[in-house]
């Protein structure tokens, strides 16, 4: 069970970066770390002891021997989640570049002050 706990520690580091840091790049990094922790947790749930990866081979299909495989359902969900994480990252980078062009800084407190 120590793997689950380490995974949540990783999540909390990302949460700390999002809540405390003032640089927008550090906030993007924190969101990426949170995404990594969630993906790792889903995959950890589906792991089976001493099992094979969920791809059948020709020998496996004809003989119908051992079907001891890891859980394929969380892997299929995480596969979509990785792509959505990429989409989140590119749109955050574009918004931060736009704000840098307008205000000349990545500091979020400066941006809040300049708004008036």
């Amino acid at each position: 069970m120590i793997e689950y706990f380490l995974c949540f520690v990783l999540f909390c580091i990302g949460l700390y970066a999002v809540a405390v840091k003032r640089n927008m790049i550090k906030i993007i990094i924190g969101l990426s770390i949170m995404g990594y922790a969630i993906n790792l947790f889903f995959t950890l749930i589906g792991y089976v002891h001493n099992a094979a990866y969920p791809i059948l081979s020709k020998v496996n299909i004809t003989q119908q021997t051992s079907l001891n495989m890891v859980d394929p359902l969380p892997q299929a969900l995480v596969l979509t989640a990785i792509v959505i994480g990429l989409a989140i990252t590119i749109i955050l980078v574009s918004i931060s570049i736009r704000l840098y062009e307008k205000y000349g800084t990545f500091d979020i407190t400066e941006i809040r002050k300049l708004k008036g």
């Binding site: 792509v83 590119i90 980078v93 574009s94 570049i97 062009e101």
Partner: peptide
């Protein structure tokens, strides 16, 4: 969708010039 979209995004983001 993924390949063309990512190429467009990369061109737009990286070679962005200030106005």
């Amino acid at each position: 969708i993924v390949g063309a979209g990512l190429f467009t995004v990369f061109v737009t983001l990286v070679f962005f010039r200030s106005e």
